[in-house]
Every structure is written in structure tokens, then in C-alpha cells.
């Protein structure tokens, strides 16, 4: 539904030209939650702000449901924007309006009659769980509550697409989880496509279907979240993943392995049902190697088990090689660790 073609954005800053986005191509499918992660300054905000033309692209096209946004007249663009909701890191609510009036605001802009828009807004406020705060002003709400208002407001015109620019970045972990759950729930309920940008891998891990890793205005890696977590290619991706899943060998294990290195050390990563299969006992039985589990970590990505094991394999060298080949043949990612 969303097609981004050869998109670039250059800024003319006092210090010279800034190439914030550099020939970026991307497709996002209907109904998916697409995450974009990248370090600060990678161009994430620039990119997402071009998706509703808050930022005008230097070149390239953005096609949403067959319409090229960059070709629209300003009046048509305003109409198109009504079908693209957006939520922000700092919520950006109107301080002079109550919760109800804030949520009704986009409907007011769209010219919906007062009675109808207040009813609609009240329903949405109910949906995001703020019915008891309907007449409060934003200043009387917590960050998490403000973001719920932001979400209700973004949904008011029944958009097809929701853009989220670091929507949980200024929230505490508990509110973050609640907001992400809410986003996942409304995606199901309203058949929405969500594009969210974040610098936190935890957000990607919790609710995204697919993800793109952004660095210096380019996508350096993209794929399903499970793919990315189980087979990261770029070092930046690995770095992000290691912030939520511990890949590093604890120093206790490292010390042990240095002290008495025998055989081979391997790191095995597995995804999904494979975690239930008895590989290790198979190794021990059929390849006559000893497998010491030195370190293990099993996590879950959206209900799919995902784990890492560090094994010390002891036995004859060719047996060890055979056993790693066996593990690989079972679809596990195996990495030999020689310099610990």
C-alpha cells in the first residue's frame, strides 16, 4: 500500500548541505506494523515526516494507496492527510482543549458536525481507556495518558495509516508497554497500517512485523523481525539487538573458557518450535561429544521462542565438526567462537 521510490531529502543548513535521506526505497504492506530503527540523526524523523509531507522531499515519490503524495495540490494534500494519523514523542496536544475537544479536533477540521464529532470522540476515548478523564485538560494527565489521547485523536478520521514518531520514547517502561499493546490492539480492530520509528529495539521486538534499520539516510537492512533477530547481518543491527537480547558471553563464562579450553566453543541461536527439539541429547548420543551448556538465554519475540546457547563441545575434532554441521542442517544458526 505504501511505496517509497528513490526518496531523498537534503537540507541546506548553515554548516553546509545535510543529506538526511539518500535515495531510499521501501514498500510497506497493508495492515502491517512496520518498524524503523536507527541511531539518532539517521534520518528517521525526516523520513516519517515526509510520509505525510510535513517535510517536502527533495526528490523521489511516496505513493499511498496508488496516490503519489508529492503530486497533490495543497487542497488535495490536506484531504489525504486526514486519512493519515500521526502520533508524536511529545504528544503535541492542544493545551487549551479538554481531552474530548482534542480528540474531536481532527473531525472539526474535516468539517464533521458537532454532535457527531463529540459522539465519535467519546467513543474513541472509551477505546483508549480514558473515559474517566474526558473533561480533563492535557496538563492534568500523565505522559501515558497524553499519548492515549494522541492515539485517539489520530484515529478520529478513521485513517488507513498511522505514523508514530518515537511515540513511546518519553514514557516510562510500564506506560511504553501499555501504549504498544494499545497500538497492537487497534491495528487488529481497525485494520490499520502502522509505521513506527524508534531508537529502541524493545519496541520493534514487541510489536513490529517487519523492520528496517536506518543509518545515515539509508536502509541498511530490512526483513521480518524474527529474521532480523535470528540472522542480523550488519553490525549496527547486531548492536541494536544486543540491547534487548544478551548475545555477549558473560565474563564468568569467558574466564572459564580461557582457563580450560578444550574442544570447541559454539554459539547456537534458534527460533520458534526448534527450541523444543532435543538437539543436545542427540549430539551427545550420536556424535559422542560432550556438550556443556555454558550459557543459555531464551527469550520470546511476539510469542515465538528465541534463544541463544553457548556450548562447550568436547570430543574428537572431526566429531565436533560433524556435530556443528548437524546443528546447521537442522536450521540453527551456529557460530564458532574462537577468540573469546
Amino acid at each position: 500500500m505504501i511505496k517509497i521510490n528513490n526518496l531523498t531529502k537534503h537540507y541546506q543548513a548553515a554548516q553546509g548541505k545535510v543529506e538526511a535521506i539518500n535515495g531510499l526505497n521501501l514498500e510497506v504492506n497493508d495492515g502491517e506494523i512496520f518498524g524503523m530503527i536507527g541511531p539518532s540523526g539517521a534520518g528517521k524523523s525526516t523520513l516519517i515526516r515526509m510520509l505525510n509531507l510535513l517535510e517536502k522531499p527533495t526528490s523521489g515519490s511516496i505513493t499511498i494507496n496508488g496516490t503519489d503524495l508529492t503530486a497533490l495540490s495543497s487542497q488535495n494534500l490536506r484531504a489525504a492527510r486526514q486519512k493519515i494519523g500521526m502520533i508524536f514523542q511529545h504528544f503535541n496536544l492542544l493545551s487549551s482543549r479538554t481531552v474530548l475537544e482534542n480528540v474531536a479536533f481532527p473531525l472539526e477540521i474535516a468539517g464533521v458536525r458537532k454532535k457527531k464529532r463529540l459522539k465519535k470522540a467519546a467513543d474513541l476515548i472509551e477505546l483508549v481507556g480514558l473515559a474517566d478523564r474526558i473533561d480533563h485538560y492535557p496538563s492534568q494527565l500523565s505522559g501515558g495518558q497524553k499519548q492515549r489521547v494522541g492515539i485517539a485523536r489520530a484515529l478520529a478520521n478513521e485513517p488507513d495509516l498511522l505514523l508514530s514518531d518515537e511515540a513511546t520514547s518519553s514514557l516510562d517502561p510500564e506506560s511504553t508497554r501499555a501504549i504498544l499493546e494499545l497500538l497492537a490492539r487497534i491495528r487488529e480492530k481497525m485494520n490499520l497500517t502502522i509505521i513506527l520509528i524508534t531508537h529502541e529495539m524493545g519496541v520493534i521486538k514487541d510489536i513490529c512485523d517487519r523492520v528496517a534499520v536506518l543509518e545515515a539516510g539509508k536502509i541498511i537492512e530490512t526483513g521480518s523481525v524474527i529474521e532480523l533477530f535470528s540472522r542480523p547481518k550488519q553490525s549496527l543491527t547486531k548492536k541494536f539487538i544486543s540491547s534487548v537480547i544478551d548475545f555477549n558471553i558473560p565474563s564468568r563464562v569467558a574466564k572459564y573458557m580461557k582457563a580450560e579450553k578444550r574442544g570447541e566453543l559454539i554459539r547456537v541461536s534458534f527460533v520458534g518450535e526448534k527450541s523444543h527439539d532435543p538437539y543436545i541429547s542427540h549430539l551427545v548420543k550420536h556424535y559422542s561429544v560432550d556438550a556443556n551448556i555454558l550459557y543459555g538465554n531464551i527469550d520470546e519475540i511476539q510469542g515465538v521462542p528465541f534463544g541463544t546457547l553457548i556450548l562447550g563441545l568436547e570430543g574428537e575434532l572431526d566429531k565436533i565438526e560433524e556435530s556443528t554441521a548437524y546443528l546447521k542442517s537442522q536450521g540453527l544458526a551456529v557460530e564458532v567462537l574462537d577468540n573469546v
Binding site: 505525510n52 510535513l54 494534500l77 490536506r78 484531504a79 489525504a80 492527510r81 486526514q82 493519515i84 500521526m86 508524536f88 511529545h90 503535541n92 496536544l93 492542544l94 493545551s95 479536533f105 481532527p106 472539526e108 477540521i109 474535516a110 478520521n157 505514523l163
Partner: peptide, 20 residues
């Protein structure tokens, strides 16, 4: 950011002045 959020909803300049 508040002005931008209204722009992202499709507000016209006139609406921005009188409603924001």
C-alpha cells in the same frame, strides 16, 4: 510540534490561525 500536529490532520492555514 503542536502546529505540526494540526497540519498533519489536514488543517488549512485559516483553521490553524483560528483553531490553534
Amino acid at each position: 510540534g503542536v502546529i505540526e500536529s494540526a497540519q498533519s490532520m489536514g488543517a488549512s492555514p485559516f483553521q490553524l490561525v483560528f483553531k490553534v
